[in-house]
Computed example of a mutant assay.
Amino acid sequence: MEAVTKVEETAAVDLDALLDAGEGPMVTLVAGETRLMARRAVLAARSPVFSAMFSHDTLESSSNEVTITDVEGPVLRELLAYCHTLRTPHPSSMTPQVLAAADKYDLSGLKTECEQQLASLLTVESAAATAVLAVRHTCPSLTKAAVAFIKANFQVLATQGWADAVHNQPKDVVEVCRLLGQPPIKIRYLSTGISFHALASSFRLGVSTVSVVVKDELKSLGRQVVVLCKIKAHNFS
């Protein structure tokens, strides 16, 4: 096992070195002042976006140089390292940017790994930014995790992170608020007009138990509605 690990680590180092060495058929990727060399065939194999770019008569295909917008140099390096090694970067402050880049270039494996990393690192301060990121880049599992975290920790709505999200990504915040305002499944179940007796039978619970559960859910939903109304009033004031 140790031998295999050493081989993988050596291969990773060698492949990382190739990003700068320019060996073999390469293409130059440019992000600001950062210029990195990558194997054209590997990029095309990993990313449908790069594959389409290189298989058509495009400027990038003819010049062998691709300008990467909205991506910083360190993030680009992580992206290319993954393409060559399929090793996910360790969680860091760059993980949200890596996720966004993975989404842009359709690196689904890297995107999924970044989702899992961010979900495991949710905090009161980071939840708002993570929720907005998840909504913007269509990350269902991360969106679910972030919304559930905010519902369980409504102090998120009083953080600077939430205020920044409202100011910088208002459309995405509206979607997050919509998800926060969705009633629990028990309440949605009742909205069909089903009786307590039928609901009790469906959940295999006593009628009195269902009554207590529904009342608790309604109280919780009421508190959420009050908070959301205050947020909406503040945003439009």
Rank of each mutant, 00 (worst) to 15 (best):
A127Y: 00
Q182V: 15
L228P: 01
K230R: 14
S237M: 12
P170V: 02
N64Y: 10
S126A: 09
L142D: 00
M53F: 12
A128Y: 00
G32M: 08
E72C: 09
L86Y: 06
K6T: 11
I231G: 01
C114H: 07
R87F: 06
A81C: 14
E2C: 10
G24Q: 03
M94T: 06
D70T: 01
H234V: 04
T159C: 03
T28G: 07
P183R: 10
L218Y: 10
I185Y: 08
Q97C: 09
L133C: 05
L19D: 07
S195C: 09
T138P: 00
R204L: 09
D106S: 15
V66T: 05
R77D: 07
C83S: 14
H234D: 13
A45P: 05
S120Q: 11
V173A: 02
A102F: 03
D14C: 06
K219R: 11
E60W: 15
V207W: 02
I150C: 01
T5R: 11
H56P: 07
H84P: 05
V132P: 01
E23P: 02
G181V: 05
P96M: 07
G109M: 07
V13A: 12
P170E: 02
K171M: 03
D216K: 15
E65H: 03
D14Q: 10
A158W: 01
V227K: 05
F196K: 14
S191P: 01
T34G: 08
H167Y: 02
G222K: 07
H137D: 00
C83H: 07
W162F: 11
Q224A: 13
L107M: 11
Y189K: 12
F50S: 13
L18P: 02
A102N: 07
V98Q: 06
S92E: 13
E175C: 02
Q155I: 07
F236Q: 15
T34K: 14
I187K: 09
A38D: 05
T112V: 15
S141G: 03
M1G: 13
L59G: 15
A21R: 13
V225S: 06
I185M: 11
V227F: 02
G24S: 08
E60P: 12
R40H: 05
H234A: 15
V124A: 01
T130Q: 03
